[in-house]
């Protein structure tokens, strides 16, 4: 699994005592944006069919952002460079964290408290265009926390915004995957 928001989400839901199913569902819903990224990238970054499964694994916020904002002639170079660089460093850092986890008092170091800030950092670039959606999701989650088991509030927040999608789509062309990816983080 190489897509930061989904990784954090699965760990977050499971860590909060949520059910495995709720964790998996949340992570997959978060990962759905990568499907839109690969649609945009398959036009911008031409390659042999055999390479596409590799490119798929490297399809994340960062590589999409670089490829879609670079001049068209550099899109391929940008995609592969960003994708491979983030892949190597991200997984090295994850390994270091896993190896060091047993020796560290996460509560005293405030690491559990940093998770919220990490989610906020992932959300930040998207706030400009979707402040209402973010506020709605946060509100639904806050109301649902006392009423539902762990893990469910996040899923409810996701489901609550779907009516927005079913409304007539006047701004469909304005908020597409490319605009999103251009400012995305992980």
């Amino acid at each position: 699994m190489f897509t930061g928001a989904s990784q954090f989400a699965l760990v977050g839901v499971l860590g909060a005592g949520g059910g495995a199913l709720a964790g998996v569902a949340t992570a997959l819903l978060l990962g759905s944006r990568n499907a839109m990224y690969s649609v945009a990238l398959s036009e911008l970054v031409p390659m042999r069919r055999a390479l596409r499964p590799v490119a798929a694994q490297l399809t994340i916020d960062e590589s999409t952002a670089v490829a879609t904002t670079a001049p068209r002639s550099l899109a391929s170079v940008g995609f592969w460079t960003a994708g491979i660089a983030v892949y190597v460093l991200w997984n090295l850092a994850t390994l270091l964290g896993a190896l060091g986890a047993a020796t560290v008092d996460t509560h005293a170091l405030g690491l559990d408290a940093a998770v919220g800030a990490a989610f906020l950092a992932l959300l930040w670039p998207r706030l400009k265009e979707a402040r209402g959606v973010a506020a709605g999701g946060a509100l639904v989650a806050a109301v649902a926390v006392p009423l539902t088991p762990p893990g469910v509030p996040v899923l409810l927040a996701g489901l609550a915004v779907l009516p927005t999608v079913l409304r007539p789509l006047r701004r469909a062309s304005a908020g597409d995957g490319r605009a999103d990816a251009a400012e995305g983080t992980a």
């Binding site: 839109m36 408290a113 919220g116 989610f119 959606v133 999701g137 989650a141 926390v145 996701g158 908020g175």
Partner: peptide, 25 residues
């Protein structure tokens, strides 16, 4: 359009909810 907007809107709602749950839950 529906799928595209869903994919761009869902992460925003989910991340905002995750912030609330992580920080205030």
């Amino acid at each position: 359009p529906r799928i595209r907007v869903a994919a761009s809107v869902l992460p925003v709602a989910l991340l905002a909810a995750l912030v609330v749950v992580q920080v205030f839950g």
